[in-house]
Nucleic acid binder design. Structure first.
Length: 570
RNA sequence: GGACACGUGGCCCAGCUGGAUAAGGCGGCGGCCUCCUAAGCCGCAGAUCGCGGGUUCGAAUCCUGCCGUGUCCGCCA
């Protein structure tokens, strides 16, 4: 609770000076209380014991006597506990918070190869990335959400070749219906066209005909040298697929501000300029066939230390283009964040070290572990996969069943609208609430849970507040302080941490911190709702109403920040 | 084999820039709708914080060894 900390630091500092502590390290020790019942922030006094030759409890007691303010101070078990006064807290919370100063942040996320529909594994990137975008915006930053389109290289090459060379019948024959499209998505281009890609992949792995490989190789080679015609052909091949993928993301509430094509940096010459510069670096090396690399071992990289950035034929590699891309990205913003799967850790390290070697800044990277299924790794080929489109349909259907059951008064259309919002929010929240570095096993029953630690739990608290507001039928006007029962006090304490949690979440790139905080806020609101009625015997308690309204607006802002749709009724 | 993550009650998960009785949720058991939406609320049971060492006044948190899981170790993307 930063606002309390700001209040406490000065008197605390002078009290510490009084007893002979002049070093500054107490500032680090002072932190949020672990026992919330004891206080909001605490100072453990154990570290002073030796220096003062006193026991920690006496030190704390001693300090407690010297400090006064709009808070209680108590010494317990060697801790000095500060707890904000209810009245002061209410005044602070009602007066609102100051937004942080704006920075230009570019967040690159998703950037999936445009070769097939999203499955829930690929979607972890999009959901985490978009949440970070939203949280940064809520924090006050000026954010650009960027999608890097992989429009060259082998994957698109295979897709383009297949669309040019295989008929629908041939595709059907090759795939032998082993991976039939869900009829529901038969008109959706990503589901449709991915079959050409899959058929081509199968053909490549089984065919003894070298000409296919040669043709694809030629295309890839041309694209990597910036051949306009081939790049145009590629674009024609992947665009409908990408659009299908974006449609899915859009249903999840995920949109992008800019799309940047990988080929841009080959075509505009920045990649070849970059390779020239890299060649001048101290740690540059050359292989027998003329390929270039950097010896990152000289800069402390362990394991495989040669980082190849140019092939023997002079063409660039994916990572090289990525470096050029990063240099361009830095020209767009003050702060750069990438969302990457843990499989990219080495690559990101190499890119980062090279950027450093070139005198460029290194981006922040948020890595996430893969999502797997209870049956094991997700694999389209083995049919062990859950498509996001299917998950969203199922979420909507199950949510609709719940709403229908609970709200007999609603029309089918209303039910469907609520169910869509509930389903999408639940799916997002299920992923965003866990720490990104944690391995994640997708389970239907967890993704579709609408109780407990879930989006609908938060949404429900919010609709309660909305329902009260609707019933009162006018805006709240803060009447000044009123009675503050325990449940309201606890709600105020939770609300007072909104900006702390938001800041932490943004500064540390940890969406789950804020996601879990919203759960606390909703829980605190539920207790307030239970104990502090706004409408009693037909008359409105203005103080309670204004607190409820404040909580409603924080819930709403927070939900938007985390990607939960703030329904007003459900 | 090497590098990097992760390992917390039956299940999921927070805490990990060292600090108080390890916080939630699911599942289980028992309560609460003449009272602003019960997708809610209250209570009970359930934890050798993977295992062994070390540092420290103090270790889930730091160091180290081992075990388990995941990822990477392409002149692929």
């Amino acid at each position: 609770m930063q606002i309390l900390r700001d209040l406490v630091e000065e008197p605390l500092e002078s009290a510490l000076t009084d007893i002979g502590i002049t070093q500054d390290f107490w500032r680090k020790a002072l932190g949020p209380s672990r026992e919330k019942s004891q206080g909001d922030i605490s100072l453990p006094c154990f570290a002073f014991a030796k220096q003062l030759a006193m026991n920690p409890n006496d030190i704390a007691a001693n300090l407690a006597d010297k400090i006064k303010g709009n808070f209680s101070v108590e010494a317990t078990g060697g801790y000095l506990n500060f707890k904000a006064d209810a009245d002061w807290l209410a005044t602070q919370v009602m007066s609102g918070v100051v937004k942080a100063k704006t920075r230009d942040v570019l967040i690159e996320h998703t950037s999936a190869n445009p070769n097939g529909p999203f499955h829930v594994g690929r979607a972890r990137n999009a959901i985490l990335g978009d949440t970070l975008v939203r949280l940064n915006r809520l924090y006050g930053n000026n954010v650009k959400a960027e999608y890097y389109v992989d429009d060259m290289g082998k994957q698109v090459g295979v897709l383009a070749w297949a669309l040019d060379n295989l008929t629908e019948d041939q595709v059907d024959e090759i795939l032998d219906d082993s991976e039939a499209v869900n009829p529901k998505w038969s008109d959706k281009k990503d589901h449709q066209i991915v079959r050409w890609y899959q058929a081509a992949q199968q053909l490549r792995s089984t065919s003894t005909d070298d000409s296919i490989e040669e043709e694809i190789g030629k295309l890839v080679h041309a694209s990597e040298h910036g051949d306009d015609t081939v790049l145009a052909k590629f674009e024609e091949a992947y665009t409908p697929v990408l659009n299908g993928m974006l449609e899915t993301l859009s249903r999840l509430g995920i949109e992008f501000d800019t799309f940047t094509k990988e080929s841009k940096f080959v075509v505009d010459g920045s990649v070849s300029k970059l390779m020239d510069r890299m060649q001048q670096l101290e740690i540059h090396g050359e292989a027998d066939n003329g390929a270039f690399f950097l010896d990152l071992g000289q800069r402390g990289l362990k394991g495989k230390t040669d980082f190849f950035y140019r092939r023997g034929d002079g063409s660039s590699l994916y990572a090289t283009r990525d470096i050029a891309y990063h240099m361009w990205k830095w020209s767009q913003c003050d702060n750069l964040i990438n969302i990457l799967g843990e499989d990219h850790k080495l690559q990101a390290k190499q890119v980062g070290m090279t950027l450093q070697e070139l005198g460029e800044k290194v981006p922040e990277v948020m890595f996430y572990a893969f999502i797997k299924l209870p049956e094991g790794k997700m694999s389209t080929r083995k049919g062990n996969v859950v498509f996001m489109d299917d998950l969203l349909e199922e979420a909507q259907a199950q949510a609709a069943a719940v709403v229908r059951n609970l709200r007999a008064d609603l029309s089918d259309e209303e039910i469907s609208g609520i169910a869509e919002a509930v389903g999408v929010s639940a799916v997002r929240y299920n992923i965003v609430k866990v720490s990104p570095d944690k391995g994640f096993t997708f389970r239907w029953e967890e993704a579709l849970s609408f109780e407990g630690e879930s989006a609908p739990f938060i949404m429900y608290s919010h609709t309660r507040a909305c329902s009260i507001a609707k019933k009162v039928g006018r805006n709240a006007s803060y009447p000044g302080l009123g009675e503050i029962p325990t449940a309201m006090f606890e709600l105020l304490r939770t609300m007072a941490c909104f900006s702390d949690k938001l800041r932490q979440s943004v500064v540390e790139n940890k969406p789950h911190v804020f996601a879990l905080y919203l759960l606390e806020l909703a829980t605190a609101y539920n207790a307030f709702y239970r104990d502090c009625h706004v409408i009693m015997d037909g008359s409105v308690n203005e103080f309670n109403f204004s607190i409820s309204e404040k909580a409603r607006s924080l819930l709403r802002e927070g939900m938007i920040g985390i990607g939960i749709i703030p329904l007003e009724t459900m």
